[in-house]
Every structure is written in structure tokens, then in C-alpha cells.
Design a protein around this nucleic acid. Structure first.
Length: 269
DNA sequence: TGCCAGGCTGATA
DNA sequence: TATCAGCCTGGC
């Protein structure tokens, strides 16, 4: 068990921010997170956070996963004091972090996310994990399913994942898995690329467009300069920044600002 | 019942 | 290069 005080860290906000579809809040202040093949329980009361894992696992995996070594105060302080909308967004979404998630898991998750809602995205991901992921048992005895590896989808008919309620997105996942396994695209290489190069490479994947590529860059590759523009963000920018959003003020961490805006659009009204 | 949800592909001009 | 229909499906 690892217990610590954390500033600018809020598991509830991270859970609701929609960047991680396998994080749930079964009851107040308690959370469960599955990332690739790992399982974690956590609790948060104010700034007191408890991670139910050993010190080694925390230091070697979860510290990085939750992006605990990044100073988010610096990002919040940089917000233009005269920008009322953005200040309100940052205030509401305080404690959001950009997680360091697995590249393959994010590719599939955001392929599934298109024209979809968060509740259904979670269900789809649970369905494919239960059907194609490895069954695991956590130290506390909890049974869970690891996120399926690309090899698990190899050889499937393109509509096979319709059974898991993916709908027309089934072929995107099956074909992308094939590209990855057969080496048409290298995830290891993408992990080493700068933002623009990585995005360009991701756009080669079937079903990955600009928005999905930016989400993958932000939530898996931690390219904080990626600024995914979806319908919510588009509406927010049009409504609040008719003369254009001042990207130049937030160079290098546009994606963090995007998350505050996204969260505010979903929960601030 | 009909519409829409964190877009993308492929056809068409 | 830009525009646009069509796409699975659950929830409201």
C-alpha cells in the first residue's frame, strides 16, 4: 500500500475525463483501474491518496501512469487571467492529469470511441477484453481481464467484433491489429517519434483520422502539444473564441488545456 | 419513433 | 480539395 498527499490530483476528475475507459468508481472515493494487464484499487479523500499496490509496482508503473512527476500547477498558472471561460474550466477540472497509457490500448479505445458515447465505449472495451483478453487475478483475489493483445484479433473476420457491440468499428480494430502484427506499422517506432511524425504514422491505420490520432498522441504518447478537436471542443471554441483560440499562449501543453475545456463542456453546465 | 453520440471512409464533383 | 452520405447500436 502506498499512501501520499498529492496536489493537483483528483481521481474523480481523471475518471470522468474520458481518457481512460477502464477506470471506474464503484463507490464514493474508491476507484478501480485496469491498465494493459495490471489492476489497481485506489482511494482518495481530499489530497490524501492511497494506492493499493506495493512500493515497487507503484514506483515502476503507477507513478508514471498517473503522471505524478509533472507539475500541473505550472500549466494552470499559465492560463490568461482575463480568460474567464478557461479559468472556470481549469477551476472545475482541477486535478485532471494526462495519463501515460499503453499505445495499443489507446489505439483500439479511440477507434471504438468514434460516433459513440462513454458508457457504450466502456462496454465495448469490457466486451473485447472478456472475449479476447487474458483472465487475471489480482493480489486481493479480484478477477479481471487484461486488455487483449493485437495477436488476439489476428485471423478474425472483419465483422467478428460486432458480437462485442463495436458495430461498424469492428473492421477498424481487426484490420489495424493485422497491420500491427504483420509489421506494416511499428508501435515501438511510433513511441520514439516526435509528435507530428507519430501522428502521421497513426493516420495510416484504418479507421484513424485526425481526432483519433491526436487522442492517441495525447493519452498514450504523452505529446502534450496534441489538441484533439471533437464536436464538443469545436462547439466550445466557436462559442467562446469567435476570433480563434489563443494557442500561442499554451505552446507545448495545448492538450492539457484541451482536457480542461472538454471536462468543462461535459460537466460544467 | 427518430435522433444522436468524443469520426472516418469512400464516392463524387 | 471539399463536401457528404452511410455506418452499428444503445439510450433518451
Amino acid at each position: 500500500m502506498v499512501k501520499m498527499k498529492l496536489e493537483n490530483f483528483d481521481l474523480a476528475h481523471i475518471c470522468e475525463s474520458g481518457q481512460c475507459f477502464r477506470m471506474t468508481q464503484p463507490e464514493a472515493n474508491k476507484y478501480e483501474i485496469i491498465a494493459t494487464d495490471k489492476y489497481l484499487r485506489a482511494e482518495q479523500y481530499g489530497d490524501e491518496v492511497t494506492f493499493y499496490c506495493n512500493e515497487d509496482e507503484f514506483e515502476n508503473f503507477w507513478r508514471h501512469y498517473f503522471d505524478l512527476d509533472t507539475d500541473y500547477k505550472k500549466f494552470k498558472d499559465a492560463v490568461d487571467s482575463e480568460d474567464e471561460y478557461l479559468n472556470a474550466a481549469v477551476k472545475l477540472g482541477s486535478g485532471i492529469r494526462i495519463l501515460n497509457q499503453d499505445l495499443w490500448e489507446m489505439i483500439v479505445s479511440f477507434l471504438i470511441s468514434q460516433q459513440n458515447n462513454i458508457t457504450r465505449i466502456r462496454k465495448c472495451i469490457n466486451n473485447i477484453s472478456e472475449k479476447y483478453g487474458e483472465k487475471k487475478t489480482a493480489e486481493d483475489g479480484t478477477k479481471y481481464y487484461a486488455f487483449p493483445k493485437p495477436e488476439a484479433f489476428l485471423g478474425l473476420p472483419e465483422d467478428a467484433l460486432m458480437e462485442c457491440n463495436l458495430g461498424y468499428r469492428s473492421k477498424y480494430v481487426v484490420r489495424t491489429a493485422k497491420m500491427v502484427v504483420e509489421g506494416d506499422i511499428s508501435l515501438e517506432a511510433i513511441e520514439k517519434m516526435p509528435y507530428k511524425e507519430a501522428k502521421e504514422e497513426l493516420l495510416k491505420l484504418y479507421g484513424v483520422g485526425k481526432k483519433v490520432a491526436d487522442c492517441i498522441c495525447l493519452f498514450a504518447l504523452h505529446k502534450l502539444e496534441a489538441f484533439p478537436i471533437d464536436t464538443h471542443i469545436n462547439q466550445a471554441l466557436n462559442a467562446n473564441y469567435p476570433d480563434g483560440f489563443p494557442f500561442e499562449l499554451y505552446e507545448g501543453f495545448e492538450g492539457v488545456i484541451q482536457q480542461y475545456i472538454f471536462f468543462y463542456e461535459l460537466f460544467g453546465k
